[in-house]
Write a protein that binds this DNA or RNA. Sequence first.
DNA 1: CTGAAAGCGCTTACAG
DNA 2: CTGAAAGCGCTTACAG
Lengths: 338, 338
Amino acid sequence: MERKRVTINDIADHAGVSRSTVSLVLQEHPRISGETRQRVQRSIHDLGYTYNRNAANLRRRTSQAIGLIINDICNPFFAELTSAIEETAAESGYFVYLVESAEDIERQHQVLMSLIEHDVAGLIICPATGTPPETFDKLYATGVPMCLAVRPYPDDRLDFAGPDNYAAAKLAASHLIETGHRRIAFLGGERNNPSRIDRLSGYFSALQGHGLEFDPALVIESRPSRLSGIGDVERVITLPDRPTAALCYNDFVGISVMHGLRRNGLEPGKDMALVGFDGMPETELTFPPLSTVSLHARSVGRSAASLLIMRIAKPERRPHREVEQPILIVRESSTLRR
Amino acid sequence: MERKRVTINDIADHAGVSRSTVSLVLQEHPRISGETRQRVQRSIHDLGYTYNRNAANLRRRTSQAIGLIINDICNPFFAELTSAIEETAAESGYFVYLVESAEDIERQHQVLMSLIEHDVAGLIICPATGTPPETFDKLYATGVPMCLAVRPYPDDRLDFAGPDNYAAAKLAASHLIETGHRRIAFLGGERNNPSRIDRLSGYFSALQGHGLEFDPALVIESRPSRLSGIGDVERVITLPDRPTAALCYNDFVGISVMHGLRRNGLEPGKDMALVGFDGMPETELTFPPLSTVSLHARSVGRSAASLLIMRIAKPERRPHREVEQPILIVRESSTLRR
DNA sequence: CTGAAAGCGCTTACAG
DNA sequence: CTGAAAGCGCTTACAG
């Protein structure tokens, strides 16, 4: 039943050498003579040997595993982020453990500790909303290298890679204001989400900079799921003094709002100018095409992975932050004034 | 520089017991007296010990890691699949290594072998298009438990979980035929993709079943990316004898075709009825809402993970197949006849 | 160029 | 209830 595992010892016996020699052959050490190398490689082939890197890692005290914890892989922004992290990690010989927290801070805590037991070389963390400081203190105590991604967290011991949400929102709001809008809503997102908080301040700042008043009735929260947000946001659409434009917390919300407008007999882009955040490829395919602020998920992912890999190499390095500058992509959803 | 690692030996010394005892405490073995257990736990806490599960795994000859290889995590179908696999794996105490093959069969081969060196307990594989039999033969030779997902592969030694592409296409095509369409295109997908081949036969079968002729000019391939497909598909739209309806290889293609129609002054749903495949949530948000055949990515993911976990537990189990039955979701894109 | 020995951090019969 | 010993599969000085 139990498959007998072929080990370095079996190879040594079969090839008539010591296991030190086999190990050196495996590492392509130059000091091994061509003849013995070939003999060993024959045995490796004949016996169907497969290297056990975990055993080697134990002995060497290294690891090729990186743990990545995000909220939801089905969110295209995080899918792109994950893809870039995986790609960058692979270039440096790392594998990535993917874990979804589903915004559950209990589960997040447990799974992070478990990843450390599994001896990851480092951690990339998009902290769940409401992550308590204790989680980071515990992680910090273990000495595991880590990098925060996407979601800022007030802890200056940590590396961070993420978008500039403040600048992104200011950019988008200014665009709408300069297009002539005066009543601009901010739709969607959950209250305590730090990205949303930063976007809100960018929005305020743009209003202020243009001498516009802030109307709290125009700021609407929504639940996280892509579909449940529609209803939350529909209220503002049907307001008597309806806003003429809206910043949408992300591109999903933007698409939902389009839908909501149509359901109420209004035309997206004409009856309400719309800008989203994230820069999802899908925004190009909506009708009308959705203006969006690209947050460069791939770049953020690449930066996060690079920062972590550098910290693994140099634990005493001082903390770095890589803040990606957003780009406004103007499409018809914000230029089709009626 | 090198952080001294706290091990079981340090705990043993500190608590004044043997390391066997510490190990037993860690495993919550009932035979350890309450008093020593507490003493040991104090030491664990005081010294900031963290368990090294890899060392334990080496000794125990087990592993909690599962390798998942897919083509592209940014494809929402695969994102959902991955999410379900991760969730199911976590329920059974497994972590998942996520790897993207990007349809590169060289890279796929290497990375699979590397995962095995990393001592994964098993593998879930969505084989890249064109995967050669040798890859599976090598994997099979190592004895690693594995499960194929989504993409069928002619190897009856393997467990498989995936959608019934043939039934899905037959369902969609029959729907269009019964709605009154006679010229129905099949748009998008890459030639050698086995899922596409199965969908094509479902499409043929529906045509045949209704006594309709097959016109090869109405079957169009497209490149994989979500955006590049538009151009490939636009040809058929502008045909003199334009089809009145189309099966779109997946929902992305469906959305692209909507876009392409509009660019040519045609109205999706009215000038051409459209049905996609996958059942992405976004289809509900397009305009008009896109009819689609749901392939149940989550169920497929759950099945794949369960099959693998069962195989890990029982390697000699005979191969199982879990074929998910698709469901047609009819929306306006296929019912807005002009 | 090659081998004997110690050790990575843990577990598990086996004694007592 | 607890400890001494062997061992998981590998690596790495250290001799020769």
